[in-house]
Amino acid sequence: MLKDHPTMCLSPKYLSPKSQQTCLQLFKAQTYNTKDIQEQLHLVRLVSIDDSPCVYLDPKDKLQIFKSNNAICVALQKHLTKEQK
């Protein structure tokens, strides 16, 4: 379910430790439905992990990242920045 709906991973504090680990693995391996995250990003322009900002789209639709120590956020940032190039 997380693979098809990775936006659930954006609130890991509400997930079990096993689900949090699954989210991290999905983002690191880039084996998730990227359309789900892209739609979220274009809709709200800011993606946060729990309450910490992770990535956002600036007014020119250029992806910007926030410095983060959250492993899920860092994995997501790496994939999204790679996808933008």
Rank of each mutant, 00 (worst) to 15 (best):
S48C: 09
M1G: 05
S16F: 11
T31H: 12
P53A: 08
Q77R: 07
C73S: 05
S19A: 12
H5S: 11
P17Y: 02
P59F: 11
D61M: 02
Y14I: 04
K18F: 06
K60V: 08
A71K: 12
S52L: 12
M8L: 09
K85M: 11
T81V: 08
A71D: 10
P12H: 08
V44Y: 06
R45G: 03
Q30S: 04
S48I: 00
K28D: 11
Q77D: 05
A29L: 06
P12Q: 08
K62A: 01
L41A: 01
P12W: 05
Q21L: 13
T22Q: 15
K13H: 10
L24Y: 12
C73R: 02
D4Q: 11
S48K: 10
V55G: 00
C54R: 05
Q20H: 14
N70F: 09
P17N: 01
K3V: 02
V74I: 14
Y14R: 12
L43M: 09
S52W: 10
Y32I: 02
E83A: 07
L76M: 10
H79N: 11
K82T: 11
F66A: 15
L57K: 04
D36K: 04
Q30V: 00
D50Q: 14
L76F: 10
C54D: 08
I49A: 06
P53T: 04
P17C: 01
Q30M: 02
C73D: 03
V47P: 00
L10F: 07
M1E: 06
E39S: 12
E83F: 05
F66R: 13
C23L: 03
Q64C: 03
K82Q: 13
L76A: 06
P6F: 03
I49F: 07
Q25I: 02
R45C: 04
Q84I: 10
D36C: 06
V47I: 05
E39N: 12
P53I: 01
V47Q: 00
S19H: 08
K28F: 09
Q64D: 05
C73Q: 03
Y32T: 01
D36A: 09
K60C: 11
Q64N: 07
I37G: 01
I65S: 12
C73L: 04
L24M: 12
L10P: 00
L26N: 00
I72C: 15
K62Y: 03
